[in-house]
Design a protein around this nucleic acid. Structure first.
Length: 432
RNA sequence: GCGGCAUUAGCUCAGUCGGUAGAGCACUGGAUUGUGAUUCCAGGUGUCACCGGUUCGAUCCCGGUAUGUCGCCCCA
């Protein structure tokens, strides 16, 4: 195997079986979004590096060590392959003044790039569906975004995905809590392990997640974020929960749920499964009211989430979802010079009438062509030799059970006969 | 970025106590020269991931690299 001709580590090819699966997933996602009135937007994969530094935060792991950043050698611009979609979406919103046009609900799907060590469910090029809303203060829209998730899991036939929610409050509330938390941990600095010491000033909230049992005991008494939330923040959080309760959607309030990106405030949520090992989060999001202004736009409240497509597709696969491969209606078998010329006309004529035709190419005996017809999964073989070509006829041979014997038909009758039998067999399928 | 495990035919895998390898599936051809799926016959495939070391000799032992996988970090 030639080492130089491999895909980049963590960036994978999707072969036809897998790609068909993805198309099915994408179809489901699009009709789900349409049901909620969301409209598509497509942003570039490459954006100016400062966009992500300003949006995500200079001191986050993503910006510090995971971004594919480079200098355009032709003009010296600092560019980055997008590590997430929200920043670019907000940039587009501001640049085209979409908020003024009452565009409030948007979605996109596409690849993102983070230079992490690849693992199952975590790749350097990965794909997200992003859903963003602008100009809506919530909590109704927060709850809508959460409820949408539940419907999608249902549409995809998935269960066992659990909802966790939390409120991060406003930045000043969070800052007060963080200061109190650091002060608390400093009191017990002799108890902190190496890991916790490192996080004390970078990410003190993560200390609460420590698996060290001694630390867990001490953490139980640590200041809680919810005690630092003001009246308005609490009311917002309660408003979200009320709608979730009204909808009968079960959830867990996880006070330790935080986000890896700096721009979130108030509502945050995650949909989590225990079936994907270490990468259990399939969908996560929350409110980011300050981001639009932070990036130079007019103050605009916003809320959204992102789903990991690789993770969701893996879940669907694991739960046994394997779609039937896409098969043509007809495999067109032909032999002879005149038959070959005629076959092209027949194939195009059938396609004109809505029949999916795989035209045999490359010659070979009838026998070998029939083998390929069978392997293609086609419902029918249409067989044309020079005899048929001479009389503008074709043999219509059913390849599957219960569809009768081979018939010789005028080419002009072919499409109708195929359509008729396809409908008949669908009725039979439904009765079964 | 850190640690554990793995890497043999297109796919799934077996195997050699160190003497350069096999099965199933798939593929190709044939069973009276124009017809698939079942059956029968025949056929081919691999630098045993890559680079180096030990050895008379390595796919098997050792080291490094690459890729995957599990966990950590972090995250969708």
């Amino acid at each position: 195997m030639n080492q130089t001709l491999q895909s980049v580590r963590g960036m994978n090819d999707l072969l036809p079986d897998e790609a068909e699966f993805w198309e099915l997933f994408e179809d489901t996602v699009r009709s789900w979004l349409k049901a909620y009135g969301y409209r598509p937007i497509r942003m570039p994969i490459v954006e100016p590096t400062p966009l992500f530094k300003r949006a995500i935060g200079e001191v986050t792991d993503i910006v510090e060590k995971e971004m594919y950043s480079f200098t355009d050698s032709l003009n010296g611009e600092q560019l980055t392959l997008r590590p997430e979609g929200t920043a670019g979406c907000v940039r587009a919103l501001i640049q085209h003044n979409l908020a003024a046009q009452q565009v409030r609900r948007l979605y996109y799907m596409g690849q993102m790039f983070r230079h992490e060590r690849p693992q199952k469910g975590r790749y350097r090029q990965f794909h997200q569906v992003g859903v963003e809303t602008f100009g809506l203060v919530g909590p109704d829209i927060d709850a809508e975004l959460i409820l949408m998730g539940a419907r999608l899991w249902d549409d995809l036939g998935l269960d066992g995905i659990e909802l966790q929610i939390n409120s991060l409050g406003q930045p000043e509330e969070r800052a007060q809590h963080r200061a109190a938390l650091v002060a608390y941990f400093e009191q017990y600095s002799d108890l902190l392990d190496e890991d916790a010491r490192r996080r004390l000033y970078t990410n003190p909230l993560r200390i609460l997640d420590s698996k060290n049992p001694q630390l867990q005991e001490m953490c139980a008494g640590a200041p809680k974020l919810i005690d630092y939330l003001g009246v308005e923040s609490l009311a917002h959080f309660e408003g979200v929960q009320r709608i979730l309760c009204d909808a009968g959607l079960p959830y867990t309030v996880n006070p330790r749920l935080v986000r890896g990106l700096d721009y979130y405030n108030l509502t945050v949520f995650e949909w989590v499964t225990d079936r994907l090992g270490a990468q259990g989060t399939v969908c996560a999001g929350g409110r980011y009211d300050g981001l639009v202004e932070q990036l130079g736009g007019k103050p605009t409240p916003a809320c959204g989430f992102a789903m990991g497509i690789e993770r969701l597709v893996a879940l669907i696969r694991d739960s046994g979802g394997t779609p039937a491969p896409v098969a043509p209606d007809v495999y067109l078998v032909h032999q002879g010079t005149e038959a070959a010329r005629f076959a092209f006309r027949v194939a195009e004529g059938l396609r004109d009438q809505g029949v999916n035709v795989l035209l045999h190419c490359g010659g070979g005996s009838f026998k070998s062509q029939m083998k390929k017809a069978d392997a293609s999964g086609a419902t029918f073989a249409v067989v044309i030799g020079d005899d048929e070509a001479a009389t503008a006829e074709a043999q219509l041979k059913p390849l599957r059970e219960g569809q009768g014997a081979q018939r010789k038909l005028k080419v002009s009758e072919l499409a109708a006969a195929i359509a008729g039998q396809l409908i008949d067999s669908e009725i039979i399928d439904e009765q079964e």
